[in-house]
Computed example of a mutant assay.
Amino acid sequence: MTLWLLFTALLATATGQGVVMTLLPPLGREVALSEFQVAIIISSSALIYALGTTIWGRVSLRFGRRRIILVGLAGYTLGTLLFTTVFSLGMRGFLAGLPLFAALLASRMLQSSVMSATPPAVLGYAIALTTPDRRLAAISRTTSANSLGQVVGPAFGGLLAALGLLVPLYAVALLTFLALGWLWRNLPDDRTLPRQPEQHTDHDTTGERLSWASWCYLIVAASLFSAMAMIHQTLGFFFIDVWGLSASHAAQRVGFVLMTLALVSVAVQFGFVQRSHWGAGRMLMLGLPALVLGYALLAFATSMTSVHLAMALIGLGMGLSYPAAAATATATGSARQQAKATGLISATPAVGFIVGPLIAAPLYQLHTTAPFMAAALLMALMLAIHHLSGIRVAAP
């Protein structure tokens, strides 16, 4: 029951993020923001989110993870209402131009600074709740909420947008408020949980410095999302420029193929990872080659069937690789080192979505398929790092 409560916290957050990312471009156009201003809002909030998760991971160790999860959900609810209110003022003509942009940027960054409390606290709670031999399954169950949110969020936002562009944002605030109430009533205080045995490896650790093993797999996890962000940045332009689709038709195609990716990723995590006795290393040895193949196939795709096949391979690879990398990165060292690694692993999606678009944009100018091939090469490099690292941890 407790793991499902943690899953709910992440699902509410991920669904909200999916809605915001779907609506932000049309909302920006509605209040006369430039594409560059919208990009600044997205990148700046992602940066604040990434920095926040590293801090909140350690704060949760001191003040209790339950409290920090609730703080994150409350911050998301209030931050969404503030962000939506600023947009409403812009749409009504009370704010415009630079003041509107500054208010939106400030409100979104403020929201990100608080909502970033939830993911590291959820992962830390899952780690504290489970024994080392069940850690991979627990992390997979909780983090699969992110993949499910990528399915539910865009569909949820698109459906409610028919009632008005701001309606989905108000619905997100209600959703996170309901999740906050449910967890406040039912989630036990993690400080009363029995202490689980710590895992140790043959790597020396001092103070709070992370081991080489943790850093290797933090890099792998961040690279997974960097490659993913490169696809998000490129795919719509690719459909328009190469396949000659209209902007609206391209947006629909992007939504369908990203849903394929997310559905496969969720199915893999629920149907295989959580029930399998495979170790994290073995999952990475299968997941990373699937990503290499998927991104490479995307570069040479000539039909929607081949694009969906490529996305299914990418979903398979993400479903196997991210929970395995997360489990490995947080499996070494003392409790304080694991807490620090947990905060950092929670930041990897945001780091990926800061770095990935900045790589993809200039590569796309060189060649329309260059971002896809770069993503494939990046995954091949991560496979080499995993193969050559020689890391052996006790967690499966």
Rank of each mutant, 00 (worst) to 15 (best):
T2F: 06
F7M: 08
T8W: 12
T8L: 15
L11E: 11
V19I: 08
P25C: 05
P25G: 08
R29M: 08
E30Q: 14
S34M: 07
S34R: 07
Q37M: 15
I40S: 13
Y49A: 10
T53M: 14
R58S: 07
L61A: 15
R62Y: 02
G64P: 01
R65A: 02
G72Y: 10
G75N: 05
Y76F: 15
L81F: 12
F83V: 04
L89R: 12
A103L: 10
S113R: 07
S113V: 11
L123D: 03
G124D: 04
L129E: 08
T130I: 02
P132R: 01
I139L: 10
A145W: 00
S147E: 00
Q150S: 14
Q150T: 11
L160F: 11
L174K: 08
L175Q: 06
L180T: 14
W182D: 04
W182F: 09
W182S: 13
D189E: 09
D190R: 13
H200K: 14
T205G: 11
T205A: 09
E208C: 04
W212L: 10
A213F: 09
L218D: 04
I219R: 03
V220S: 12
V220F: 07
L224M: 01
F237D: 09
D241Y: 11
W243V: 00
A247K: 13
A250L: 06
F256P: 03
T260G: 08
V266E: 09
V266N: 06
G271V: 05
V273E: 07
R275V: 02
R275E: 04
S276K: 07
G281H: 11
L288P: 03
L293T: 03
L297F: 05
L297R: 01
M311S: 04
A312T: 03
I314D: 10
L316F: 05
L316S: 05
G317L: 09
Y322D: 01
A325P: 14
A326R: 04
T328E: 06
T330A: 02
A331L: 09
T332R: 13
Q338V: 12
Q338T: 12
A341F: 07
I345G: 06
T348C: 09
V351R: 03
A361N: 13
A374H: 00
A395F: 00
